[in-house]
Amino acid sequence: MNIWMQGRNLALCKDVFRLKQISLHAKCCHKLSSSQGYENARALQLHVAYLPNLHSGKRKLGTEPFSDPNVLRQQLYTISFVPTRSKSTGKQSSDTSEKRSLVEARESPYAGLTPSQKVKEAGKDASYTLVIVVGLAVTGFMFYMIGRELFSSQSPSGVYGDALKKCQASMEVTAALGEPIKGYGETTRRGRRRHVSHTEFEVNGVPHMRMRFYVEGPYRKATVHVEVEKGESGKYEYRYLFVETEGYPHRTFILEDNR
């Protein structure tokens, strides 16, 4: 059950519901009283323990003593407490008119404002919306960049993955380096090796990418040099790919040479 009520502080809340004798739940009281400073909160949810026959409308509310535990069956209802910007209306005599005013208070957040205040509020809302939109745009752009880097095969990491697979599949390289071959990029100071050094450039308007990474097996380490160029299909094709072992007998395994 939702009750929309107008007012800004606990006194008014109590007054509207004639809750003077009802001890509000301690938490609710706190929320209510702390809501006095709420200017921009659209709605504040709070729980109130109150009598079940409070809204019957037949009795005079809030007059019964609370000794009977059956009467005092506490039920939790959610009351949304809507602080309005308008001046708190004077005490109204009948319950129905109060309730109608409560319903009306919900209709527009701009209700009961002078034109200058309306302009001010609209400006505030617009600026907040702008901030949110800019933040979403920046986040979306970053995710787009990451997704393009990680999922596309036409990115540095895609080329790296494919070249590493080629090295691992090559008989000569596995014979020279040993069987489980692992690949990594440049070592940073903190022991991270996932950045593969690469440069992108253009030759006669055709995009090229040159890349260097390292492979390591149980016997030896090696450096892999790759260059790819964009073919007619718009995909990267190998220009060359060779593996150069470290250590004294330098050996070079050319896996791809399409020059």
Binding site: F201, H208, Y240, F242, E244, H250, R251, T252, I254, R259
Partner: peptide
């Protein structure tokens, strides 16, 4: 800098075999 001045395969325009393992 990007002229193809690659060290190990020096512009193998006439490489008949891909699988040469010649020590460079």
């Amino acid at each position: 800098m990007e002229d193809p001045s690659q060290m190990p395969p020096p512009s193998q325009n006439t490489s008949p075999f891909f699988t040469n393992q010649a020590p460079q």
